[in-house]
Design a protein around this nucleic acid. Structure first.
Lengths: 221, 221
DNA sequence: ACGTATTAATTAAACGTTTGTTTAATTCAA
DNA sequence: TTGAATTAAACAAACGTTTAATTAATACGT
């Protein structure tokens, strides 16, 4: 058997072969559209054009395939914007705008992966997986948290509930991303056309969240 | 076989026997914690203390059991607050507060059911089920929509994006309800203790959403 | 550079469970 | 006595995983 240990702490960055990445890509797509339990390893193998046994061979099991997928999709995150919260040239307001642009683009671009995460975190299934997901969410939300706290320290932002403000940002984006058929119906868009939906909703979502947070965090009145 | 047609349009309100309700209750709990595909009909039968065959006998199939569950949990909604949006004694601001109290309580109380809905609507599984879920969401969100439009007509509210404002309200509540392990970790609460988590988060969530919408919809500044 | 030893990659087939559903017999109630 | 409720058993299909055999690739001593 193929021998490797996907460490939780992200210490060991795996090297993935082309075949493995192929499997991960197909798994992501199918898990997102049919659910983890609703997707069989044979579905994945067939669409990835590999033998069924290769999945056990490479990843050990279906559960570990999911863990590997999540680790793979999160191991290189946070590098682009890690400097943002410590950037002295930007005001907290500018940082808020930048961080909204970043998260809207990130979640909408990686919407399949986020659909899997959002579904899986509310399932009491694998304790190890839950721990991984919590850490990913913490890492993702820490930047917003830092920016808000900075603004509050500088008396530019109100003293809002930071955890729930993060929940509002994440929740709004997730809602738009995961309840697509509902919003397509609301906005009278074709539910089948993914591209035009996200093309239309993306800038709306950004400006909505920016004006929402501007009003929410403003100290005046 | 047991013969009945769970109509989409909610026209026919089913009469459910005690055994059937028992099955529906257990199914709701298991679907919420283990997912629809992750729950077997034998799991349900065992916990509901009925024979496996009774599920097919009463509901036809596992899929139709899920449809029946959703129809059962939504067929009596909207009665309590249907008068709210047409109440002339209340200002739009008071209506917003009332509607937030209502939805936070509703979603947190029926969190198992909403977890199932939120998970299932993003799956491309059963077209009939997707249609049912869209209609439920439309029905649920129409009240907020009406109130906001009324406030805008009366020049009390800003001209915000109504659909996305609804998404913010629903998304924030869903996020708190579905990412419980994450918020428990953030707020340093015991993830196992459901009761104390929701007891603590419920009033925080209500006041957060109220002040958020007050700032968001206010016309001043 | 070549043949060989060693390891990795890949395969088809089979494994034992578990899945949702049905059957046919029986019990229960009207 | 008729029809609904309930049961244990059986059903075929699908599930995740393993096996054992084969092919491809790599390393190494000469």
């Amino acid at each position: 058997m193929f021998n490797f240990a996907p460490e939780i702490n992200g210490k060991c960055i795996m090297e993935w072969s082309e075949k493995q990445l192929q499997i991960l890509n197909v798994a992501e797509e199918l898990f997102a559209s049919k659910g983890f339990e609703g997707t069989s390893v044979r579905d994945i193998a067939q669409k990835a054009e590999v033998n069924v046994a290769m999945i056990s061979y490479y990843f050990g099991s279906k559960e570990k395939l999911l863990q590997s997928l999540i680790l793979n999709r999160t191991e290189q995150t946070g590098l682009i914007l890690e400097g943002l919260s410590h950037d002295v040239k930007l005001s907290p307001w500018e940082k808020i705008d930048k961080v909204i642009d970043y998260y809207v683009d990130k979640i909408l671009n990686e919407r399949n992966f986020h659909a899997i995460m959002n579904r899986q975190i509310s399932l009491v299934q694998d304790k190890k997986l839950t721990e991984i997901l919590i850490n990913v969410k913490k890492r993702n939300s820490s930047m917003i948290s830092e920016i808000i706290h900075e603004g509050q320290r500088k008396k530019i932002f109100r003293h809002v509930n930071v955890a729930l403000t993060i929940g509002t940002v994440m929740g709004t984006i997730s809602q738009v991303s995961m309840s697509k058929p509902f919003y397509c119906s609301l906005l009278k868009l074709d539910a089948g056309d993914d591209i035009s939906y996200y093309k239309k909703i993306r800038p709306q979502l950004k400006s909505h969240l920016k004006s929402l947070l501007r009003a929410h965090l403003s100290i005046n009145n």
